[in-house]
Amino acid sequence: MQKRNHLLIFILSVGVFGILNTEMGVIGILPSIAEHYNVSISRAGWLVSLFAIAVAVSGPTMPLLFSGINRKKVMLLVLGVFVVGNVVSIFASNFAVALIARVIPAFFHPVYCSLALTVAADSVSEEEAPKAVSKVFIGVSAGMVIGVPIASFLASAASLEVAMIFFAVVNILVFLATLLFIPSMPVKGRQSYGAQLSVLKKAITWVSIAAVILLNSSVFGVYSYLAEYLKTVTNMYSNSISFMLFMYGGANIIGNVVAGRLLTNHAVRSVAALPFVLGAVYIMLFFFGKLSVPVAVMTLIWGIVAGIGGNINQYLMMSAAPEAPDFANGLFLTSANVGTTLGTAVGGLFISAMGTQYVVIAGLLSLILSTAIILLRHYMLTPAQQSVS
């Protein structure tokens, strides 16, 4: 049973990697796409922005719609849609077709990711659930960080089509692994849509949504401009910037592993400490941003803390609505995307008004607000929930 659970979680992790890789990997090949379809780089960017909008819109609804169907069948459906989208992208003769082939799978993105988190948690005991979920988050981090340089390398070393083939191959392999090795998973004790939607009547659900938005905003409001920060403030060369981005990604994966243990043993303390630790990192970045070595150290710590933060965001939503796990994970995905969009916009405003060095203020403001929300959320918990260390 334990070996089967390990295999299940591994397949889910790789599956999430494949889907996030499809989403984020395109960032590394946008110049090649613009050249291939003879469109501007800003128009090519629609492949990223419209994908993110589709995910944000479908986050609360699609997981809810599929929540009563056999989970294996749903995962195969979503992976199949991504495979078809990937294959169409390889042979797309014009940009409009390529855009459609991207956006349609995007609506199914929250379904698989939500299911992966729910199934991973359900495959182990309640106490071990955070560790299982953290392993799936490794796939999320890897998809967000590793997919970009791999796709960029393949496009430059071979062709744009080869990079697209890479996306397809990963999803095909996960589809086959799911088909062959994951058992049928009928939904037990199926809940009505109304019963799941009723979690929106709880104040703690909305407070948790606000906390997730602000915490994700605090991370991506600064991280979205990390390359620009390293270039203009720290005065690093392009090779050094690439290394720093890789280091951040690797640290993010480490943070996922650490988060599993923290949330298993010290959930409440970990949630309370996150804004203060991340705030300290940003303050150090602000005062020592021109010095390469301190910035490298802070980036490493920042990556670990951000990895922990992603797990904490999911924990906040799940603990607020444990009776509707698929819907709660969908709310988490949408809230996280809203936070990313909000943080990136606010960070851009600070850069335009004050300069790149001051982008950390955007992160600090989100952290101050998130601290107040987390404190409010804590006092809304029952005494038994508050006593969890």
Rank of each mutant, 00 (worst) to 15 (best):
K290C: 01
N239V: 13
G143K: 09
A132N: 10
S238E: 14
G221M: 01
S240T: 13
A384H: 12
L333D: 12
R269L: 07
S335Y: 02
G194I: 06
F82H: 05
T234D: 14
I213S: 01
V293A: 12
T382Y: 02
I308H: 04
M1V: 15
G143M: 11
N86R: 04
V97D: 12
A96F: 09
N252F: 13
F17L: 11
N38Y: 08
M380Y: 06
E161T: 10
L47D: 00
A44C: 04
M284A: 15
F350C: 03
G194K: 11
V111Y: 02
F82T: 06
L7R: 14
M244H: 10
S89V: 08
A273D: 09
T344C: 11
T356Q: 09
V87E: 03
S217A: 15
G347P: 04
A384S: 14
Y358V: 12
L30P: 07
L50Y: 06
P105G: 02
G310P: 01
W46E: 14
V359H: 14
L76R: 00
S192A: 12
A92F: 07
R102I: 10
I53A: 14
V359Y: 09
V169H: 00
N256V: 01
V83A: 02
L117W: 03
F332A: 03
S58T: 13
A372D: 00
T232H: 12
F10Y: 14
S270V: 11
F246P: 03
L263W: 02
A54I: 02
S218L: 03
F167Q: 01
P325Q: 01
D326Y: 12
Y112A: 06
E23L: 09
T382P: 02
I213A: 02
R4V: 04
A306H: 08
V124C: 01
F181M: 14
F181H: 13
A227R: 13
E128D: 15
M1F: 11
F276G: 04
A267S: 07
V78H: 00
L300V: 12
F153W: 11
L285F: 06
I150M: 07
V297P: 04
F91T: 15
G45E: 00
V174N: 00
M284W: 10
A98F: 15
S32T: 11
A324L: 03
L263C: 03
T334M: 08
V257N: 07
L263H: 06
A306L: 10
S370L: 08
A56N: 13
I146S: 11
A384D: 15
A345R: 06
A34I: 11
A384Y: 06
